[in-house]
Design a protein around this nucleic acid. Structure first.
Lengths: 193, 193
DNA sequence: GAATTATCGACCGGTTTGTTCGAAATGCTT
DNA sequence: AAGCATTTCGAACAAACCGGTCGATAATTC
């Protein structure tokens, strides 16, 4: 058969699709197992818990996104506007991540209102980015869902940190340093470069 | 305050958003209540059960879609050919339909998720028609998620019933009667005309 | 053919969830 | 204000659900 590590990735991909659709809480181990056409208990041979699967999924997706964003921004000619455009096109990836964010807060829907509030203040391109931000800000909270106030603060802090590299209008700032600044804010502490 | 009937509609719209996102089973009364900013038990003053809410939602959505489809088809200029072309281009979608719902019922998801799956792959007009089919085909299944075979059959029957008015090649059939035939298949038994 | 690897069904205890019910607000009429 | 109908809600419950365990069993390797 195939490698054990390969099968782990298979689980990550498959479970990731379900997680991204329904969030952490609403995704059941039975569903993950059924999607993989295997018994529920078999999964525990590869992962210790549902949370461990989710953690692996987030890491996996974040790495993909990081690469996408890197090449995306680097390939842009006219800096600011085109970059925004591209990010808008890439909506889907971000949307996927936003679901992870939803996953975290699926206990109290108040945070959906938070998203809606932001949706009103920014146009669509920025919303896409904001979702990414939310994903990042919420990550620390993933396995400790209780204290929602703290998470909201974390998200806002991340937002604040992104304002400069993302929405700064000065054209003289070159795209490379801009990218690095964004990635720093978004992925600092999550993914080793 | 407002009318009781108006409040019922308010619940329908609000609950409909959650249902469309998570499906019937994964949507909880707590969520519906919280979205409406009211106690869970208060909802039972307006609806007898979760199923009744969902039934109302389906009816509400189906009526909207009915109007959409009606105006859409009527706005076609050169009647038969254009419409037939339009539909035939998308024949593949219908052919693949069975695969999709098989996949979905394998995963034990209900029909709203199916809509979301299709939304990613097809354009909007197509989606409108497919949604109608699903609404109709899956309707009997809504409150009895266990026996997926039956639902699959129901969908296929609906599809089959659509072949004649939708893909019939005879040019003499005018668009009005064609529309009526389609609507008959899709909404027969659901919406009183 | 023994040992290791991989899969599974059955089961458990805690949690969730749809629904009920009586009581407490709230609004309305006199 | 009093009395009545309308509307909201918290507490509680039975049933279902869900993550995780465990021992048995099958498959693969050596």
């Amino acid at each position: 058969m195939i490698n054990k590590e390969d099968f782990r990735r298979k689980i990550i991909v498959s479970a990731g699709q379900i997680f991204s659709r329904f969030g952490f809480k609403k995704t059941t181990m039975d569903e993950i197992a059924k999607a993989l056409k295997m018994g529920k208990s078999s999964i525990y041979y590869y992962f210790e818990s549902k949370e461990e699967i989710f953690e692996a999924v987030v890491l996996y997706e974040a790495n993909i996104l990081r690469n996408e964003l890197t090449t995306a921004i680097k390939s842009v000619e006219s800096p600011v506007d085109k970059m925004r455009n591209y990010v808008f096109v890439r909506m889907k990836s971000f949307e996927k991540l936003s679901n992870y964010y939803n996953a975290i807060f699926d206990k109290n829907l108040d945070h959906f209102d938070f998203i809606e509030t932001i949706r009103e203040k920014y146009d669509r391109e920025e919303l896409a980015i904001l979702r990414l931000i939310l994903y990042h800000g919420a990550r620390k909270k993933v396995f400790n869902v209780v204290n929602s106030e703290y998470t909201a603060m974390a998200i806002q802090t991340t937002l604040k940190g992104l304002e400069v590299p993302l929405f700064w209008k000065k054209k003289e700032v070159n795209i490379e340093s801009r990218l690095n600044a964004i990635l720093d804010v978004l992925f600092n502490g999550i993914i080793k470069k």
